[in-house]
Design a binder for these strands. Structure first.
Lengths: 163, 163
DNA sequence: GGCTTTCCCATGGTATCCCATTGTATCCCG
DNA sequence: CGGGATACAATGGGATACCATGGGAAAGCC
């Protein structure tokens, strides 16, 4: 289960989007047919996607780390305390696909992405992202720089480097 | 079974509210048709909702963790001791839905929420919440800040943050 | 008997189902 | 190994079903 590649998919006039086969194949075998979309917690204009299992697992890890072992009761009762899992959940939607792998994109995500006729789907290992195609190009260019710098750093910090 | 998304629902002049299909689908298959509303124990103006099963399970965990193994017997007999589960129960109401998913909102909750023509339904994983739409917007904005801070904290130890 | 609650029907919009088309990748066969 | 046959991925579109909502009428309730 690892999402890879970037794929540009049409957003048709009925608001439908195809989850590419490459991504569908990464959903759990017992839960194809539906997945989760949720707003990025810290980057406006980015929507994340994951399998229901993957999303729920992330929420669980989140609560475990944020609240400790006895957190479950507190989270269930305390409506005042900030609950990161609850926050993500509020910005998430379960998406059911048609048998052919298409789904109708909720208006809130169309707005957030500001897409009109195409969506860029990007694999990020344990999740995937939806981007406005143009914004993704910009982001990608910026990340290329960072990646190059990151690799340079790696070799600089190593003991002796390559032979 | 996990409640997600935020949905604004009309409160019509007859006092009826629709539980959105997205939430109805999360109710236990053998107990659609009814659910539980209860006042938030610590945030005025917030009403929580859950399936009957979910609510009862929470009460049970509450008694188990708050009162220990002998709690149930004590609770049954000791009317002097404070019983948080009993407190919640008193502020709760079982709500029967019409076949189309609508229910008439009890006046006590309308007052508590101070809603006139719309209610915001918010998925919080194992329960959902009802909010006054305006108040929810404010709360949501505040939580966005906290979420961003939370994410920043997480990445503090990582190599190569966003800066 | 006035008022609220419940049942039922109506409607506009959206989503879903199903069928069709095109292009590409895969397979099979000699 | 070429060439056509086949399967599937991505897209378009008509018809239908369902969601959210409004409102009339019947059925309670002091």
């Amino acid at each position: 289960m690892a999402f890879r590649s970037e794929i540009l998919i049409k957003l048709d006039k009925k608001g439908r989007v195809l989850l590419p086969a490459a991504f569908r194949d990464e959903l759990p075998a017992d839960d194809r047919g539906a997945f989760v979309l949720y707003h990025s917690p810290n980057v406006p204009g980015v929507v994340n996607g994951n399998s229901r299992l993957g999303f729920d697992a992330m929420l669980e890890r989140l609560r475990a780390e944020a609240l400790g072992p006895k957190g479950s009761l507190k989270v269930a009762l305390d409506d005042e305390a900030f609950d990161p899992a609850g926050y993500l959940s509020a910005g998430a939607r379960t998406i059911a696909m048609e048998p052919d792998g298409r789904f109708s994109m909720p208006a809130e995500f169309v707005e957030a992405l500001d897409v009109a006729d195409g969506v860029m789907l990007v694999g990020k290992v344990e999740k995937f992202q939806l981007w406005n195609p143009a914004r993704w190009q910009a982001r990608r260019a910026a990340e290329r720089e960072k990646m190059a710098a990151f690799v340079r750093n790696l070799s600089a910090g190593d003991a002796g480097g390559e032979a």
